[in-house]
Simulated scan of single mutants.
Amino acid sequence: MTYRLQGKICIVTGGGQGIGAAVADCFAREGASVVIAELDEAMGAAKACELAAQGVPSLFVHTDVAQAESVRVMVAAALVRFGRIDVLVNNAGINVFRDPLKTTADDWKLCMSVDLDGMWHCCQAALPAMLEGGGGSIINMASTQSFSIIPGCFPYPVAKHGVIGLTRALALEYAARGVRVNAIAPGYIETRRNIEYWNRFADPAAARQATCDALPPKRIGRPDEVGMTAVFLASDEAPFINASTIVIDGGRSIAYHD
């Protein structure tokens, strides 16, 4: 049986939970070795142990993407264990939603340090190994808020707009040297964060249904649907896809009105 990522060494930041964990699972099923770079030690270690129990070569490295040195240590550990890096999925992120005029310097720094700077730290650390190895694929997790703004979510969409700029700039810089850089922009996906959001309402089931009703397919997206899109971009099936963003939202972001 041929696996789509057979032999590839893949780093997934925020890989211990949510979409990141789904990406790690999808990569593992397609034959990849997986490095789980995760801030939450318990979740990260648990995911790496789960993969290892399935016979998947895996490694957990406690990583704070907001700290460049932490990222460098993670990449160094991946290289010691596996010898090269073929794929980097910049998935780690944080929701920071504030009233613009009440946004503090710390609020702004927290959002940008994780959602934008963190991706740059990882790209900067992993790119030399990819270039030395003759190429690779970087996949940045953007958002539908990279294009369309939901009021009340400032400054999160500012960072996510920046992710698209980072993706495009790096994609053109390194395309001739074999590195492709693309983004995925999920909409509503059934992650723990969204479930917690619905649970804040007096009737969580009704809140969830309202979200479903607002989406063209009348359902919420699944984390594995994002994961399999990442598999495609990471694989040798997408050699001429570069500086692109794949939107996964069931078509919601193009709707003019409800």
Rank of each mutant, 00 (worst) to 15 (best):
M1N: 09
G7Q: 11
G16I: 07
I19F: 08
G20A: 00
A21S: 11
V23T: 01
R29G: 05
A32I: 11
S33N: 08
V34R: 00
E41H: 11
G44H: 07
G44W: 00
C49T: 14
C49F: 12
L59I: 06
L59Y: 03
F60Q: 07
F60I: 06
V61A: 08
A68Q: 12
E69Q: 14
R81E: 10
R81W: 06
R84N: 00
R84S: 05
V87A: 07
G93L: 04
N95P: 01
V96M: 00
F97C: 00
R98C: 04
L101E: 15
T103K: 02
T104V: 07
C111Y: 03
D117E: 13
G118S: 08
H121I: 04
H121F: 03
Q124L: 07
A126N: 09
L127I: 13
P128M: 06
P128N: 03
G134I: 04
G136I: 02
M141G: 03
I149D: 04
C153W: 02
P155M: 06
P157N: 01
H161V: 01
G162K: 07
R168E: 15
E173G: 13
V179P: 06
V181W: 04
T191L: 01
N194M: 13
N194D: 10
W198G: 07
A206D: 10
T211H: 09
R219S: 12
R219K: 15
I220C: 08
D224N: 00
V226H: 03
V226N: 05
M228Y: 14
A230L: 01
D236Q: 12
P239E: 12
F240Y: 15
I241A: 05
S244V: 05
S244D: 14
S253Q: 09
S253G: 06
A255H: 13
Y256R: 13
D258F: 13
D258E: 09
